[in-house]
Structure formats: C-alpha cells, structure tokens
Design a protein around this nucleic acid. Structure first.
Lengths: 136, 136
DNA sequence: GAAGATTTGTACGTATGTATA
DNA sequence: ATATACATACGTACAAATCTT
C-alpha cells in the first residue's frame, strides 16, 4: 500500500500507520532500526517534515525512540516490576514534565504513576517499569 | 526574560519554558487562551515552527489543548473519579494508540490506565479522569 | 586525535488546506 | 463570504551528535 497525497488522511499519518503495522506485525522487532529519514523520504516520495512528523507520532505513542545522529529504533520496553499498592493509597497517571522526564531518564511517550500514600506522601514511578498490584 | 537565539537551549524550548511558567504561575488560568501563533511569532521574534514546536511540547505534557482554527488553551483537567482496584488486580500506565485516543476522546498528553482483573479481563481507563484506590 | 560521512535537530521561508467564528 | 487561526507539506540551510576511517 503506497501513500496517497490526495487522501483526506495526512501523509504523515499514513506513513506512521505503515510503520506501526510493520512494528506490530513483528517485521520490525524491538531494538531494530527504522529506515533513516532520508530513506523514508525517498522510498515514499514525501518531504522530510512528513517523515519527521510520522516518527514523532510513533515516539509520542511510546513505540519508537530516536537517538540524535544515529537513528530511530523500535522501543524495547523494559520488564515491569510489581509494586504493591499500600492500603489507603491512591494512584493517578500523567505525563512527566520535561525536567522529570530527563531526571528519570524516561523515553518520550512514557507516562508516570503518581502514588499518594495514606500518610500524604507522594511517589512518582516510571510508567513503563512498574505494574501496581493489589494482592488478592 | 527574552529569548536568546544564541543560547545552547533551543528557541522552542525557551519559549515553552516561558509559557509553562505563565501557566504554572496562574497568569494563564485553565481554559484561557494562549496567544495565537502569529502573536507569539511577532512578540518573541521567532519563526512559526519554533512557536508550533513549543506549543506541541506543552500539549505532549498535557498542559495545553489546541483547537484547529480556534487557538490553544490551557488545559482544564477534569475532576478525577475514584475507582477501587479489585483484589488481585494489577494496573499499568501507557500512552493510548491514535485510535484509542480518538475513541476515548482523550486530549494529547493524556495516558491511559490498563487494569488487569484477577479473571484476566482487561479494562482501559482514561488517565486524566480516574484515580485508582486501594481502600485501607 | 583528526577527518569525513551519516543522521537527526533546529530554524526559517513559502504555499495551500481546513476548521472556526 | 470574509477573516482568523491552526494543519499539512514542500523547500533550504546549518548545527550537533554519532560512527567509521
């Protein structure tokens, strides 16, 4: 399926859909490199901005990470460690601020879990490394 | 504080920092409009792309929503309803796919909570409307 | 270390499309 | 219909990071 510039769906969304399918089908496995911007530009006959917006879209979904000067890669999700939610605690999900993201070394498109303990203390956990549990 | 094009921090990050401060200081309250792209371009002496990247950054943090043809606004976070996490359940946070985002009418920069019940059933909840609790 | 090639990042300009008021 | 505002998409140029030679 080629990209149709006259479609009502934007070129960059079409390209992102193409790449997402290649990721989810397993053709592009976690850790493997996406084609460079130049290749995607040539092979699909679109401008660089469309290519970059497509990759940015996948990054914001947490599917891809990009390393400057190197390339974009299918994101390897770390294993999740189980964390028990204390009795009386509450948890909310939100996106980290830029400083939080850098401090916690979170990839783009990765939320945080904000846990409020019954004592009022707040703990911010990386959303891709943690799975909260309530024991049976 | 004006924007310095020769700084090592990108122009669009500087502009995003300026706007974020105006939001977090309360000068720009939830629901109020940000200046238009044209105004920000003129008033800060930067290109339109820098303005758009700054706003996109704030959107990805869930601080701002943009309505096409209308403008960008400080995001009004909905009140969170408390949802009890069932015994034996686990919960993870992640970003929604594009289709999920549209189906659940989530703003950009809003994650989802994926709850796995002890029976294996999976439930996906809007991350900005829900607060999971474990009763004391 | 130095040099060069590759790749992504930033930034600007321009043009056109589309949604809203 | 007009005006405003954001969205898409092309182009160009240079900066900065990474890797290889």
């Amino acid at each position: 399926m080629a990209i149709d510039p006259r479609s009502h769906t934007p070129v960059y969304v079409q390209l992102a859909d193409l790449l997402r399918r290649r990721i989810e089908s397993g053709e592009l496995t976690p850790g493997s490199a996406l084609p460079s911007e130049a290749r995607l530009t040539q092979e699909h006959g679109v401008g660089r901005e469309a290519v970059r917006m497509a990759i940015a879209l996948l990054r914001s979904e947490g599917l891809v990470v990009t390393v400057r000067g190197h390339g974009s890669y299918v994101r390897e999700a770390p294993p999740r460690r189980r964390v028990e939610l204390a009795p009386g605690a509450t948890v909310a999900a939100r996106m980290p601020s830029g400083t939080e993201r850098r401090a916690m070394q979170l990839d783009e498109g990765v939320p945080v879990l904000e846990v409020r303990g019954p004592d009022g203390g707040v703990e911010v956990l990386p959303g891709d490394e943690v799975e909260l549990t309530r024991p049976a």
